[in-house]
Design a protein around this nucleic acid. Structure first.
Lengths: 251, 251
DNA sequence: CAAGTTCCAGTCGCACTGACCCTAACCATG
DNA sequence: CATGGTTAGGGTCAGTGCGACTGGAACTTG
């Protein structure tokens, strides 16, 4: 607790109300240029059978960050998320019908969750497109729709001010892969040539490896493979001032 | 609480640990071009006699936002903060020596706290320069140094993406007052003419009232008074890509 | 070899902005 | 009233960052 100038009427600070504290993790990854979120199916009431974000109780002996890290390992088996950032706390009185629960939301970005989901209880965990959740095509338990929405908002900001973009791709990647991350999260269409210029012009963003990627099934010139540089900590190289939204084709 | 795939070994989910949940409010205002934070002096142990951020317990019947709003009223008597934004949660096990406490940090911006502090227990509340807290010239209780630091970081970001700037000034203001907000929070020196151009060029940021301010004690042409427009919700007009840091004179 | 696809390099032009200058409108002093 | 100091407001100029576009390079398949 903190300081108060005086107890409000009818309220005794020594009898503080007890809450359960949990951490919920919005795990994002990119599959075929589409942003996906890891959901698990609830096995217990309330909301039994519904999709939900993984999460669990915070223990008294650990910090919130440690709780998030531990839950991520327990749910996915991955102990090295490329990004694990707290983005919000949620404490509406009726958000859990059983008791008073305050939850802290964390955003995690993984680059390959395929093996991860198999490692967990495969029947209960699944990657679904984020758009399906936001469009309510897939209903999620509790206030998890709001939590996912705010997590994606946070990802959009992080993309601009930090090096989160490289967290979605492998240790080596093509500029097209990196560009797809920006296009998927911001929902914009970026010119490939201009994107390249912004990234390659200044030193420190990407480091050419000299190797080339496998050409795609449709042919085309093979792309140079890059590694991430060290400049990603002080603000991203690409800015979202592009006013041109991507017109979604009716795929 | 949320969903878990299975209880971890040696841990029974039905016996969840109990936490106290509080909200702490970093109240910022601007006095003579310097960013100030409202601190109160603790009257009880632990940290008795030290400065701290105002805050208090969340009640089971209210949301976190409502708790922050209520605490703001109780501490300052002001129920109309121009901005009240959650920016982080803090739950280190040893952050409070008495019990397990998770606190949620809120950032509030007031335009005139002078009368506000008097309304509260004047001997115990005071506005101090944020720089004194960040430089540890003034020690604060608990982990409140970290909380203030992250609140100011958040204010810097909000300044760029939202209309927080107008929250520091009155309903009518001069462009010099508005510019001082940016300069104080970002720690930069902005060219007055270029600032004017950026604000006035596009419609919707500021609306001229036709009236003029009182000239300052040193003379000078009186400035036009403006009202805030409606464009502040979709990203601020000024961006922090200025590389020129302000060299602090040895005042 | 031809056609299609993707990557990469370069050019053009606009818009934004940092730096700077000048005038307008006020005050203080003599 | 004259002069100098101070701040507001309007303008110019040059650099630069970026969107739009073009064309060549390096692959594929048929």
């Amino acid at each position: 607790m903190t300081t108060r100038t005086g107890p409000p009427a009818g309220y005794d600070p020594s009898q503080f109300p007890a809450f359960a504290v949990t951490v919920d993790i919005v795990i994002l990854t990119m599959i075929d240029g589409e942003l996906q979120v890891l959901l698990i199916r609830r096995g217990e009431d309330p909301f039994k059978g519904m999709w939900a974000i993984p999460g669990g109780f915070k223990r008294p002996t650990e910090t919130l960050d440690e709780a998030a890290q531990r839950e991520l390992v327990e749910e996915t088996g991955v102990d090295a998320a490329r990004l694990l950032t707290q983005f919000g706390a949620y404490g509406d009185p009726d958000r859990d019908p059983r008791m008073n629960v305050v939850t802290v939301g964390y955003l995690a970005v993984l680059r390959d969750v395929g093996a991860v989901v198999a490692g967990s209880d495969a029947a209960d965990a699944s990657l679904v497109p984020v758009s399906d959740v936001l469009n309510e095509k897939i209903d999620v338990a509790f206030d998890h729709l709001q939590i996912v929405r705010e997590a994606v908002d946070r990802a959009r900001v992080e993309l601009e001010v930090s090096g989160i973009a490289t967290a979605f791709v492998g240790t080596t990647f093509t500029l097209a892969e990196l560009r797809a991350v920006y296009e998927a999260i911001w929902g914009v269409q970026l010119d490939a040539a201009n994107f390249r210029r912004s990234i390659v012009a200044a030193d420190g963003w990407v480091i050419p490896t000299g190797r080339r990627s496998q050409p795609g099934v449709t042919g085309g010139r093979p792309a140079e493979l890059y590694r991430a540089g060290r400049a990603w900590r002080q603000g991203g190289p690409i800015h979202a001032r592009s006013t041109k939204r991507r017109e979604e084709p009716g795929r």
